[in-house]
């Protein structure tokens, strides 16, 4: 599952674009001792400039649209976004609302997307998505 050589640890920046916190608490749960993603070197960082991958939650409200894009643009290339939760993927229960600008893959198509469906998904699923993103990044590096 994990690439052979750990060239570097996977650093994650977390963006909430108006989600209900359900996915956000599961992301923290994935980092804390029971699931302990930090044993793979996956950790949350405080600045988008340090991040390899973005953990993205929420359906992108109109207010957050510009801010979210500004933050994604600050992350280094290649841009990898793991969309966590059904509402980030297609609006989920909030679809058809008058105040949604998302989903994010329509707003910002120039990135590699990984999706974790669920409302909210389990921490195991979140870790698996990051492992997939990691594998993809290793592939890109080889090329």
């Amino acid at each position: 599952m994990i690439p052979k050589a750990f060239k570097r640890s996977l650093w994650v920046f977390h963006i909430n674009s108006g989600s209900c916190n359900g996915c956000d608490i599961e992301i923290i749960a994935a980092l804390t001792p029971r699931y302990d993603a930090e044993r793979f070197g996956i950790k949350l960082v405080g600045s988008p400039r340090h991040a390899d991958v973005i953990a993205f939650t929420g359906p992108v409200t109109n207010d957050m649209k510009d801010k979210v894009i500004r933050i994604i643009e600050q992350t280094p290339d290649p841009k990898v976004i793991v969309v966590i939760g059904s509402c980030g993927i297609g609006g989920g229960v909030f679809h058809e609302s008058y105040h949604l600008a998302g989903p994010i893959d329509k707003l910002y198509p120039n990135a590699k997307y990984f999706y974790v469906p669920g409302c909210p998904p389990r921490p195991e699923a979140i870790i698996q998505a990051f492992a997939k993103a990691w594998e993809w990044l290793e592939e890109v590096e080889k090329k």
């Binding site: 108006g18 909030f94 609302s97």
Partner: peptide, 10 residues
């Protein structure tokens, strides 16, 4: 207001 998703409207 940044988290306004229009839940009541839905």
């Amino acid at each position: 207001s940044q988290n306004h998703r229009g839940i009541e409207w839905i």
